[in-house]
């Protein structure tokens, strides 16, 4: 097989099946259709140019996502000012505080209030997540990458992936729930973050003040 044919085979069998996924991730990264298209194309071309590095058995999806993430980060570094201004509207700490309130809706565990929200609302909630949370949530929940793969795509430790994923999901859930409440789609009762059943005896004693055995 000539090198050209081999190259084409890799592209067709390993790269092109992920085109939709890549484009979708590109949309979440850039939040702009034109930029997402450019980013997807650039990622494919870079992958082709580096395809001689591609060994059989490599996780092509994670590999392509990694190229896309790096390309995106390089581009945003160049347009740093716009990027910072854009993200400046987010206040993570504020959002995390909101996240302390755990809201129980009047739904059973078999239903989710999310289905009552419009698609565009759900998309908006994800797009408004700070970028470092947005990437992990999209990669884990939409693209179903493992923690290890995400760590590889984002070049960060697995622990970072887990904590970002935890915070990102919490933020997302809180925001969606507060929208659903605002719109009157669900009725909810606000409770403390920890449901009563999970509070241990020690926690309970601490919360009710000094005990006799001190």
């Amino acid at each position: 097989m000539s090198k050209r044919t081999a190259e084409r085979k890799i592209v067709e069998q390993e790269f092109l099946p992920h085109l939709d996924s890549l484009h979708r991730y590109g949309l979440f990264l850039t939040r702009d259709t034109t930029m997402a298209e450019e980013l997807t194309q650039e990622t494919m071309l870079k992958a082709i140019r580096a395809s001689f590095q591609y060994k059989e058995g490599t996780n092509s999806k994670a590999w392509l996502f990694r190229i896309m993430t790096n390309t995106f980060l390089n581009q945003t570094r160049r347009r740093k000012k716009i990027y910072e201004l854009d993200e400046g509207t987010m206040n993570v700490e504020e959002e995390a505080e909101v996240g302390q309130v755990f809201v129980h809706s009047n739904q059973t565990p078999e239903q989710s209030f999310v289905t009552m929200l419009s698609k565009s609302k759900v998309r908006e909630a994800i797009e408004k997540l700070p970028p470092e949370f947005r990437s992990v949530v999209v990669l884990a929940d939409l693209e179903e990458l493992s923690y290890k793969e995400i760590a590889e795509v984002l070049s960060c430790p697995i622990g970072t992936v887990m904590s970002r994923l935890h915070r990102g999901r919490k933020l997302l859930r809180t925001r969606l729930m507060s929208w659903a409440l605002e719109m009157g789609l669900v009725k909810g009762v606000e409770e403390e973050d920890e449901p009563k059943e999970t509070i241990s005896l020690e926690d309970y004693r601490r919360s009710t003040g000094p005990t006799t055995d001190q």
Binding site: L19, E37, T40, I126
Partner: peptide, 25 residues
């Protein structure tokens, strides 16, 4: 999580976009 994915799962990329990328490839 499932509801989220269902809400977000967009249709495949627009045909015109796909064609342009495939052409570049």
């Amino acid at each position: 999580q499932q509801a989220l994915v269902e809400r977000l799962n967009p249709p495949r990329m627009p045909r015109a976009v796909r064609d342009r990328i495939l052409e570049a490839v």
